[in-house]
Computed example of a mutant assay.
Amino acid sequence: MKFYSLFLFIPLTITLTNCNLQKKSNYKYSQKESISFLDEIVKNAKLSIGDFTKIEKQPTDKLYLYTRYPISKTSLEEFNKNNGTIVNKDDDIWDFATYIFKKYELINEKDEKVYYHSDSINLRTIHLQEYSLWDYNNVLCQNLGIKIKLNKKYEKLKGYVVIEFKMPDKVNKEVKFPVNITIYDEEAE
């Protein structure tokens, strides 16, 4: 009976190990590329109100982190060949980026502390959202972001948010973003 259990245990262990290796093998980027990616998205990241809030100028309970990353040469060729379209294959470097909120302090115009909404997905590790493609200084970039839902609406918001971005192979980058925004900001993203 022990031999039979061992006989089942070994193939099961090999199968599970291979499945885990196959999952890791989907990540085709080097550690250097991961570090460069995180450096680039952090360099371009900022917290802001959303576009609808900019237009409507009404108090909001949303806060967004926006950033961007240049698309690959292969994707750019596809974009140019297909009249401005790219098929999303879910294997771009940003598809592997996750983040976690480490800490934050947000104060509204009434000097009240503002918190993440209790049913918000912000306190779990999740992936960056893909937004539209956009040309920045003649470089086509993928816009990426994080939508943060708060427990109170605000007109002005001050404080900070600390986010840790994570890539496979334990490449992480923790960043503290200052927050000093108002719904009356005219600045374009």
Rank of each mutant, 00 (worst) to 15 (best):
K2F: 00
I100S: 01
E189S: 13
D91T: 04
N143V: 10
I107P: 07
K62L: 12
E187S: 10
K28N: 14
Y184S: 06
P70V: 01
N172V: 03
K57H: 04
V139S: 14
I163D: 02
Q129T: 09
L16F: 06
Y184M: 10
F79L: 15
V87C: 06
N18I: 15
K173M: 07
K103C: 01
N151A: 02
L106Q: 05
L157G: 02
K23W: 13
H117Q: 15
E130C: 10
T15Q: 11
E40P: 00
N80D: 15
E77I: 07
E109M: 06
K158M: 13
K54T: 14
F165L: 07
K2N: 07
G50D: 15
N151H: 04
F177Y: 15
H117G: 05
K89T: 08
P178K: 08
W134T: 11
K176D: 10
N122H: 08
R68K: 14
I55L: 11
N88I: 13
I107G: 04
V175R: 03
Q129C: 02
K149L: 14
S25N: 15
K113L: 13
E155Q: 15
K166Q: 06
Q142P: 14
D90Q: 12
T53D: 09
T125W: 06
E112L: 08
I86Q: 07
D51S: 12
Q22D: 14
E164R: 09
K102V: 14
E112C: 00
W134A: 14
S75V: 00
I148V: 03
K102Q: 10
I107A: 04
